[in-house]
């Protein structure tokens, strides 16, 4: 699924988009637990999370995840935006709950990791 499609489905705002919004995402993974994210072998993932701090971006950097989505309109700090830009990440933000966000993307065909 294209990142631009994901943004459209969720009526999401694009906070950082240094990379191409037409690049494709294979899997969705939703977690607020960063150690869990760090166990993933797969890449081309969108990380969907309500955890909005600098470690969320650092975790994505280490796990080679280039696309993040913050639910419930969680606000990324300037420091987070800067680090995301440095790492050519795309950050989306939507107002839906984690449950609704995941449900919508699953319904539209985004595959889970497990």
């Amino acid at each position: 699924m294209k990142i631009s499609e994901i943004a459209k489905i969720l009526d999401a705002r694009i906070l950082v988009s240094n990379s191409n919004l037409d690049s494709r995402i294979k899997y969705g993974f939703a977690s607020d637990l960063m150690s869990d994210v760090l166990t993933l072998d797969e890449e081309e993932i969108i990380l969907i999370t309500g955890l909005c701090n600098i470690q969320t971006i650092r975790t994505a950097e280490m796990a080679n995840i280039n696309c993040l989505l913050f639910v419930r309109n969680k606000q990324a700090s300037e420091e987070m935006i800067e680090l995301a830009m440095e790492n050519d990440m795309i950050i989306l933000q939507c107002e839906y709950s984690l449950f609704r966000t995941v449900g919508l993307l699953y319904e539209k065909g985004l595959r889970p990791v497990y």
Binding site: M34, S35, T39, L51, T56
Partner: peptide, 16 residues
């Protein structure tokens, strides 16, 4: 825990 860690996965993750 607020930072998204502290679930007892750190050392097992390192070992893996």
């Amino acid at each position: 825990r607020e930072m998204g860690f502290g679930a007892g996965m750190g050392l097992p993750n390192i070992k893996n």
